[in-house]
């Protein structure tokens, strides 16, 4: 069931960020759907959350003390230069965890050899699938490594990068249609047979 801002949520689990309270009642603040008693918001702009694993692009350096990373969120993140085990430069794509705060990125890996794409963060769960089932199919059938950030940035490297990207965009567009896993599996199988 579609929910619009201002719709009341009764007996529904919902992340607080996307709701508000008025006169003791809970209302949705964003577009989303309610399924099986849970409200899933249609989040387009990622809100950095402590503990999230994210993928980002280094866009600036601040006086050799830190690097600024674009996460496609409403604010950027930083990587502290001190104690950094890898060398990074502006333009690099990195993967890390927002461990110390929702702004500081640590456990940095530099990603190379592929392409960076951005999808709607609320579709990331679909790209990963239950127990990683969806992303596993993509990786196997296209022989790629797929690095998924909860912020909606995904880095793909390997053999058939463009096919993997096409599959990911398809998941984003069809996230709410049933039978998506089979659809993607068939789509990738069909493309494989074309080679």
């Amino acid at each position: 069931m579609i929910v619009l801002p201002g719709d009341e949520l009764v007996n529904v689990r919902a992340p607080r960020q996307y709701t508000y309270l008025k006169d003791g009642k809970t209302y949705a603040a964003v577009l989303g759907i309610v399924e099986n008693g849970t409200f899933t918001p249609y989040e387009f702009v990622y809100t950095p959350k402590l503990g999230d694993v994210v993928v980002g692009r280094v866009i600036a350096e601040k006086k050799r003390v830190a690097y600024i990373v674009d996460l496609g969120a409403y604010k950027t993140a930083v990587i502290m230069t001190r104690g950094l085990p890898v060398k990074i430069k502006i333009g690099d794509v990195v993967m890390g965890k927002l461990e110390q705060s929702d702004e500081i990125l640590s456990n940095i890996r530099v990603l190379r050899g592929g392409a960076l794409i951005k999808i709607n963060p609320s579709k990331i769960a679909r790209v990963i699938g239950t127990n990683g089932s969806m992303v596993k199919i993509i990786k196997e059938k296209t022989e790629t490594s797929v690095y998924v950030g909860y912020n909606g940035y995904i880095y793909v490297a390997g053999k058939n990068v463009s096919k993997a990207i096409k599959a990911i965009y398809t998941i984003e567009r069809r996230a709410h249609i049933r039978g998506l896993t089979d659809f993607i599996s068939d789509m990738l199988e069909g493309e494989k047979n074309e080679e």
Partner: peptide, 11 residues
């Protein structure tokens, strides 16, 4: 604004 997922009180 709704399509952008920006929080609003109502329509």
């Amino acid at each position: 604004l709704i399509a952008a997922g920006i929080p609003m009180r109502t329509r």
